[in-house]
């Protein structure tokens, strides 16, 4: 998993899911902040007709923060307003750049990725079960 992938995965994950995996991370010092958690918004854009000119659809809440740990920076940019979630996400990003990467990829990122995959697949399979074939009835007089 590349760094953009794990930052995105942490952003999209449910705060409760990351909290539940936190024992695998263990004790950490107080964060050395580069940027304290801040909630704001991002303007989401769409395209006319799905493919054309960009337009502003509406905003989504996000919380970002950044911290320093053992010479590396941990960044988070998470959906929603949960500062604790953003802080945890930034910690994982920092620790993924240390020698703990392998263990955290296995104990934290892999379960989050699997939860997202399973959630999406269940939804896709429910949708597929509602797929219909409309049959055209014979039209006209003869």
């Amino acid at each position: 998993m590349t760094r953009p992938d794990w930052i995105g995965l942490l952003s999209r994950s449910a705060p409760d899911a990351l909290t539940a995996l936190w024992p695998a991370v263990g004790d950490l010092p107080a964060p050395d902040w580069l940027r304290r958690p801040e909630t704001g918004s991002v303007m989401v854009r769409g395209r006319t007709g799905g493919t054309g000119a960009a337009f502003n659809l509406g905003e989504v809440t996000v919380t970002r923060c950044a911290l320093r740990h053992e010479g590396v920076e941990g960044h988070a940019f998470v959906q929603g307003r949960d500062a604790a979630h953003a802080t945890r996400a930034a910690w994982i990003d920092a620790l993924m750049q240390t020698d703990r990467a392998e263990a955290l990829a296995r104990d934290v990122l892999a379960p989050l990725a699997e939860a997202e995959r399973a959630r999406r697949e269940t939804r896709a399979r429910k949708a597929e079960a509602t797929r219909v074939d409309f049959e055209t009835m014979v039209r006209g007089e003869d």
Partner: peptide, 13 residues
């Protein structure tokens, strides 16, 4: 809320 940026246009396809 401070505006923290704008997204890339979403790919509805």
């Amino acid at each position: 809320l401070p505006r923290l940026g704008a997204s890339r246009p979403i790919d509805t396809g």
